[in-house]
Design a binder for these strands. Structure first.
Lengths: 143, 143
DNA sequence: TTCGATGCAAAGCCTTTGCATCCTG
DNA sequence: CAGGATGCAAAGGCTTTGCATCGAA
Protein backbone atom coordinates (compact mmCIF):
# COMPACT_ATOMS: atom_id res chain seq x y z
CA UNK A 1 0.00 0.00 0.00
CA UNK A 2 1.07 3.61 -0.45
CA UNK A 3 2.66 5.47 2.38
CA UNK A 4 2.54 9.22 2.21
CA UNK A 5 5.89 10.95 1.79
CA UNK A 6 5.51 12.83 5.06
CA UNK A 7 4.68 9.66 7.00
CA UNK A 8 7.60 7.83 5.51
CA UNK A 9 10.05 10.56 6.50
CA UNK A 10 8.57 10.76 9.99
CA UNK A 11 9.36 7.10 10.38
CA UNK A 12 12.89 7.71 9.18
CA UNK A 13 13.35 10.54 11.66
CA UNK A 14 12.33 8.18 14.48
CA UNK A 15 14.61 5.46 13.18
CA UNK A 16 17.54 7.84 13.25
CA UNK A 17 16.75 9.02 16.77
CA UNK A 18 15.74 12.48 15.61
CA UNK A 19 12.74 14.26 16.98
CA UNK A 20 9.41 14.56 15.27
CA UNK A 21 8.23 18.08 15.99
CA UNK A 22 5.10 19.78 14.70
CA UNK A 23 7.30 22.21 12.79
CA UNK A 24 9.02 19.37 10.96
CA UNK A 25 5.70 17.74 10.20
CA UNK A 26 4.39 21.00 8.78
CA UNK A 27 7.44 21.35 6.53
CA UNK A 28 7.14 17.73 5.38
CA UNK A 29 3.47 18.17 4.62
CA UNK A 30 4.24 21.20 2.51
CA UNK A 31 6.97 19.35 0.61
CA UNK A 32 4.85 16.24 0.10
CA UNK A 33 4.16 16.03 -3.61
CA UNK A 34 5.40 19.58 -4.15
CA UNK A 35 6.89 20.07 -7.60
CA UNK A 36 7.50 23.81 -7.40
CA UNK A 37 11.11 23.47 -6.20
CA UNK A 38 10.54 26.02 -3.44
CA UNK A 39 13.22 28.19 -1.86
CA UNK A 40 13.78 28.35 1.89
CA UNK A 41 11.84 31.55 2.03
CA UNK A 42 8.89 30.14 0.10
CA UNK A 43 8.75 27.15 2.42
CA UNK A 44 8.93 29.40 5.44
CA UNK A 45 6.25 31.74 4.18
CA UNK A 46 3.88 28.91 3.40
CA UNK A 47 4.40 26.94 6.60
CA UNK A 48 3.96 30.16 8.54
CA UNK A 49 0.28 30.15 7.58
CA UNK A 50 -0.35 26.92 9.44
CA UNK A 51 2.29 27.57 12.05
CA UNK A 52 2.57 31.28 12.87
CA UNK A 53 5.62 31.05 15.12
CA UNK A 54 8.00 28.93 13.08
CA UNK A 55 11.28 30.71 12.51
CA UNK A 56 13.41 30.90 9.40
CA UNK A 57 16.27 29.28 11.31
CA UNK A 58 14.12 26.24 12.00
CA UNK A 59 13.31 25.92 8.33
CA UNK A 60 17.01 26.12 7.48
CA UNK A 61 17.86 23.56 10.17
CA UNK A 62 15.16 21.15 9.11
CA UNK A 63 16.06 21.34 5.44
CA UNK A 64 19.70 20.67 6.29
CA UNK A 65 18.66 17.64 8.33
CA UNK A 66 16.42 16.33 5.57
CA UNK A 67 19.15 16.80 3.01
CA UNK A 68 21.64 14.89 5.15
CA UNK A 69 19.07 12.12 5.50
CA UNK A 70 18.90 12.02 1.73
CA UNK A 71 15.16 12.57 1.53
CA UNK A 72 15.28 15.92 -0.20
CA UNK A 73 17.66 17.31 -2.76
CA UNK A 74 19.09 20.82 -2.86
CA UNK A 75 19.18 22.21 -6.36
CA UNK A 76 21.88 24.53 -7.68
CA UNK A 77 19.99 26.00 -10.60
CA UNK A 78 18.77 29.37 -9.36
CA UNK A 79 21.83 31.61 -9.05
CA UNK A 80 20.24 33.65 -6.26
CA UNK A 81 19.19 30.96 -3.81
CA UNK A 82 18.99 27.28 -3.07
CA UNK A 83 15.88 25.39 -4.09
CA UNK A 84 14.61 22.11 -2.76
CA UNK A 85 13.11 19.05 -4.34
CA UNK A 86 11.40 16.32 -2.30
CA UNK A 87 11.73 13.97 -5.25
CA UNK A 88 15.18 12.42 -5.01
CA UNK A 89 14.79 9.98 -7.88
CA UNK A 90 16.88 10.54 -11.00
CA UNK A 91 15.52 13.41 -13.03
CA UNK A 92 16.58 16.80 -14.26
CA UNK A 93 15.38 20.39 -14.43
CA UNK A 94 14.65 23.26 -16.77
CA UNK A 95 14.57 26.84 -15.58
CA UNK A 96 12.90 29.73 -17.35
CA UNK A 97 15.23 32.73 -17.59
CA UNK A 98 12.31 35.13 -17.46
CA UNK A 99 9.96 33.91 -14.72
CA UNK A 100 12.34 31.63 -12.86
CA UNK A 101 9.97 28.68 -12.86
CA UNK A 102 11.73 25.33 -12.59
CA UNK A 103 10.13 22.29 -14.14
CA UNK A 104 11.07 18.65 -13.88
CA UNK A 105 12.59 16.89 -16.85
CA UNK A 106 12.14 13.16 -16.99
CA UNK A 107 13.70 11.17 -19.71
CA UNK A 108 16.61 9.02 -20.57
CA UNK A 109 19.62 11.29 -20.61
CA UNK A 110 21.57 8.32 -19.33
CA UNK A 111 24.45 8.17 -21.79
CA UNK A 112 25.22 11.77 -20.99
CA UNK A 113 25.66 11.09 -17.34
CA UNK A 114 28.86 9.13 -17.38
CA UNK A 115 32.24 10.75 -17.08
CA UNK A 116 34.60 10.26 -20.00
CA UNK A 117 37.41 7.84 -19.10
CA UNK A 118 40.12 10.46 -18.91
CA UNK A 119 38.16 12.35 -16.27
CA UNK A 120 37.00 9.31 -14.34
CA UNK A 121 40.61 8.47 -13.60
CA UNK A 122 40.89 11.77 -11.78
CA UNK A 123 37.44 12.16 -10.32
CA UNK A 124 34.98 9.79 -8.68
CA UNK A 125 31.49 10.86 -9.70
CA UNK A 126 28.74 10.30 -7.16
CA UNK A 127 25.97 12.15 -8.89
CA UNK A 128 25.16 14.12 -12.00
CA UNK A 129 22.41 16.45 -13.04
CA UNK A 130 21.40 18.24 -16.16
CA UNK A 131 20.10 21.78 -16.09
CA UNK A 132 18.35 23.29 -19.06
CA UNK A 133 17.80 26.99 -19.40
CA UNK A 134 15.52 28.78 -21.79
CA UNK A 135 11.96 30.04 -21.73
CA UNK A 136 8.66 28.49 -20.79
CA UNK A 137 5.71 28.76 -23.12
CA UNK A 138 4.15 31.60 -21.17
CA UNK A 139 7.32 33.69 -21.32
CA UNK A 140 8.75 32.87 -24.73
CA UNK A 141 6.38 35.26 -26.48
CA UNK A 142 7.82 38.20 -24.56
CA UNK A 143 11.42 37.61 -25.57
CA UNK B 1 47.24 33.17 -36.59
CA UNK B 2 46.25 32.94 -32.96
CA UNK B 3 44.79 35.89 -31.19
CA UNK B 4 45.00 35.93 -27.43
CA UNK B 5 41.70 35.72 -25.60
CA UNK B 6 42.24 39.10 -23.94
CA UNK B 7 43.07 40.80 -27.24
CA UNK B 8 40.06 39.30 -28.91
CA UNK B 9 37.71 40.56 -26.19
CA UNK B 10 39.30 43.99 -26.24
CA UNK B 11 38.43 44.17 -29.91
CA UNK B 12 34.90 43.14 -29.13
CA UNK B 13 34.59 45.81 -26.47
CA UNK B 14 35.63 48.44 -29.03
CA UNK B 15 33.24 47.04 -31.60
CA UNK B 16 30.38 47.37 -29.16
CA UNK B 17 31.32 50.91 -28.24
CA UNK B 18 32.37 49.96 -24.73
CA UNK B 19 35.47 51.31 -23.10
CA UNK B 20 38.74 49.52 -22.77
CA UNK B 21 40.05 50.41 -19.34
CA UNK B 22 43.19 49.12 -17.64
CA UNK B 23 40.96 47.43 -15.04
CA UNK B 24 39.12 45.50 -17.72
CA UNK B 25 42.37 44.52 -19.37
CA UNK B 26 43.71 43.24 -16.05
CA UNK B 27 40.60 41.13 -15.51
CA UNK B 28 40.77 39.77 -19.05
CA UNK B 29 44.43 38.89 -18.65
CA UNK B 30 43.64 36.98 -15.48
CA UNK B 31 40.80 35.10 -17.15
CA UNK B 32 42.83 34.33 -20.27
CA UNK B 33 43.39 30.59 -20.28
CA UNK B 34 42.22 30.31 -16.69
CA UNK B 35 40.60 26.95 -15.95
CA UNK B 36 40.11 27.37 -12.22
CA UNK B 37 36.54 28.68 -12.55
CA UNK B 38 37.27 31.56 -10.18
CA UNK B 39 34.71 33.37 -8.06
CA UNK B 40 34.29 37.14 -8.10
CA UNK B 41 36.32 37.40 -4.95
CA UNK B 42 39.15 35.28 -6.31
CA UNK B 43 39.30 37.40 -9.45
CA UNK B 44 39.28 40.57 -7.39
CA UNK B 45 41.98 39.35 -5.03
CA UNK B 46 44.23 38.32 -7.86
CA UNK B 47 43.79 41.42 -10.01
CA UNK B 48 44.38 43.53 -6.91
CA UNK B 49 48.01 42.45 -6.96
CA UNK B 50 48.62 44.08 -10.31
CA UNK B 51 46.08 46.82 -9.76
CA UNK B 52 45.94 47.86 -6.11
CA UNK B 53 42.97 50.20 -6.42
CA UNK B 54 40.47 48.11 -8.35
CA UNK B 55 37.22 47.80 -6.46
CA UNK B 56 34.97 44.79 -6.02
CA UNK B 57 32.16 46.69 -7.68
CA UNK B 58 34.25 47.14 -10.81
CA UNK B 59 34.91 43.41 -10.91
CA UNK B 60 31.18 42.72 -10.58
CA UNK B 61 30.38 45.29 -13.27
CA UNK B 62 32.98 43.98 -15.66
CA UNK B 63 31.95 40.37 -15.24
CA UNK B 64 28.34 41.30 -15.86
CA UNK B 65 29.36 43.13 -19.02
CA UNK B 66 31.47 40.22 -20.23
CA UNK B 67 28.67 37.78 -19.54
CA UNK B 68 26.19 39.90 -21.52
CA UNK B 69 28.70 40.00 -24.37
CA UNK B 70 28.72 36.22 -24.23
CA UNK B 71 32.47 35.92 -23.78
CA UNK B 72 32.39 34.39 -20.32
CA UNK B 73 29.94 32.01 -18.74
CA UNK B 74 28.62 32.17 -15.18
CA UNK B 75 28.44 28.74 -13.59
CA UNK B 76 25.76 27.66 -11.14
CA UNK B 77 27.59 24.77 -9.56
CA UNK B 78 28.95 26.14 -6.29
CA UNK B 79 25.96 26.69 -4.00
CA UNK B 80 27.70 29.53 -2.17
CA UNK B 81 28.76 31.79 -5.02
CA UNK B 82 28.88 32.32 -8.74
CA UNK B 83 31.88 31.09 -10.63
CA UNK B 84 33.11 32.18 -14.02
CA UNK B 85 34.48 30.38 -17.02
CA UNK B 86 36.20 32.19 -19.90
CA UNK B 87 35.69 29.12 -22.06
CA UNK B 88 32.23 29.40 -23.55
CA UNK B 89 32.42 26.40 -25.82
CA UNK B 90 30.23 23.40 -25.02
CA UNK B 91 31.61 21.49 -22.08
CA UNK B 92 30.58 20.50 -18.59
CA UNK B 93 31.90 20.45 -15.04
CA UNK B 94 32.63 18.24 -12.08
CA UNK B 95 32.85 19.65 -8.57
CA UNK B 96 34.55 17.97 -5.62
CA UNK B 97 32.30 17.97 -2.55
CA UNK B 98 35.30 18.13 -0.26
CA UNK B 99 37.70 20.74 -1.67
CA UNK B 100 35.31 22.56 -3.99
CA UNK B 101 37.57 22.31 -7.01
CA UNK B 102 35.74 22.45 -10.30
CA UNK B 103 37.21 20.69 -13.30
CA UNK B 104 36.18 20.76 -16.91
CA UNK B 105 34.52 17.76 -18.47
CA UNK B 106 34.96 17.42 -22.19
CA UNK B 107 33.41 14.63 -24.05
CA UNK B 108 30.72 13.65 -26.38
CA UNK B 109 27.86 14.74 -24.19
CA UNK B 110 26.39 17.26 -26.56
CA UNK B 111 24.18 15.30 -28.89
CA UNK B 112 22.12 13.74 -26.13
CA UNK B 113 21.28 16.97 -24.40
CA UNK B 114 17.87 17.39 -25.90
CA UNK B 115 14.67 17.87 -24.03
CA UNK B 116 12.19 15.00 -24.24
CA UNK B 117 9.33 15.84 -26.60
CA UNK B 118 6.72 16.25 -23.88
CA UNK B 119 8.82 18.94 -22.24
CA UNK B 120 9.93 20.67 -25.43
CA UNK B 121 6.30 21.44 -26.19
CA UNK B 122 6.19 23.46 -22.99
CA UNK B 123 9.69 24.83 -22.79
CA UNK B 124 12.12 26.25 -25.33
CA UNK B 125 15.60 25.19 -24.32
CA UNK B 126 18.41 27.60 -25.12
CA UNK B 127 21.17 25.89 -23.24
CA UNK B 128 21.99 22.89 -21.14
CA UNK B 129 24.76 21.95 -18.79
CA UNK B 130 25.76 18.85 -16.96
CA UNK B 131 27.15 19.03 -13.43
CA UNK B 132 28.88 16.10 -11.83
CA UNK B 133 29.51 15.95 -8.11
CA UNK B 134 31.77 13.57 -6.26
CA UNK B 135 35.37 13.60 -5.11
CA UNK B 136 38.64 14.34 -6.81
CA UNK B 137 41.51 11.91 -6.48
CA UNK B 138 43.22 13.95 -3.80
CA UNK B 139 40.10 14.04 -1.63
CA UNK B 140 38.55 10.64 -2.21
CA UNK B 141 40.92 8.94 0.20
CA UNK B 142 39.64 11.06 3.08
CA UNK B 143 35.98 10.15 2.66
C1' DT C 1 15.06 14.03 32.83
C1' DT C 2 17.77 14.57 28.79
C1' DC C 3 19.30 16.34 24.82
C1' DG C 4 17.91 17.67 20.49
C1' DA C 5 14.88 21.37 18.47
C1' DT C 6 13.08 25.95 18.44
C1' DG C 7 12.92 31.06 18.17
C1' DC C 8 15.12 35.29 18.12
C1' DA C 9 18.55 38.34 17.11
C1' DA C 10 22.94 39.29 15.50
C1' DA C 11 26.43 38.50 12.44
C1' DG C 12 28.52 36.86 7.99
C1' DC C 13 28.90 36.56 3.12
C1' DC C 14 27.82 37.58 -1.48
C1' DT C 15 25.90 40.90 -4.44
C1' DT C 16 23.70 45.24 -5.80
C1' DT C 17 23.07 50.19 -5.76
C1' DG C 18 23.86 55.31 -5.54
C1' DC C 19 26.71 58.82 -6.49
C1' DA C 20 30.62 61.76 -7.12
C1' DT C 21 34.76 61.50 -9.74
C1' DC C 22 37.61 59.89 -13.41
C1' DC C 23 39.10 58.93 -18.08
C1' DT C 24 38.49 56.63 -22.64
C1' DG C 25 37.21 57.64 -27.17
C1' DC D 1 33.99 66.97 -23.82
C1' DA D 2 30.40 63.51 -23.26
C1' DG D 3 29.11 59.45 -21.54
C1' DG D 4 30.54 55.29 -19.88
C1' DA D 5 33.58 53.30 -16.08
C1' DT D 6 35.53 53.49 -11.53
C1' DG D 7 35.80 53.57 -6.43
C1' DC D 8 33.73 53.90 -2.16
C1' DA D 9 30.35 53.16 1.01
C1' DA D 10 25.95 51.80 2.18
C1' DA D 11 22.28 48.77 1.69
C1' DG D 12 20.01 44.37 0.45
C1' DG D 13 19.28 39.44 0.30
C1' DC D 14 20.39 34.81 1.61
C1' DT D 15 22.38 31.95 5.12
C1' DT D 16 24.70 30.83 9.45
C1' DT D 17 25.53 31.17 14.33
C1' DG D 18 24.96 31.78 19.45
C1' DC D 19 22.24 31.14 23.11
C1' DA D 20 18.41 30.77 26.24
C1' DT D 21 14.22 28.19 26.33
C1' DC D 22 11.18 24.54 25.06
C1' DG D 23 9.45 19.94 24.53
C1' DA D 24 9.63 15.02 22.39
C1' DA D 25 11.01 10.68 23.88
Amino acid sequence: MNTRYADRIVGKLRTEGLKVTPQRIAILNFLDGNRSHPSVDEIHREVLRAFPTISLATVYNTLETLEKMGVIRALCIDPTRKRFDPDTSLHHHARCDRCGTIRDVWGDLGPTLRLPDDVSREFVAEGASVSFRGHCRECVTYC
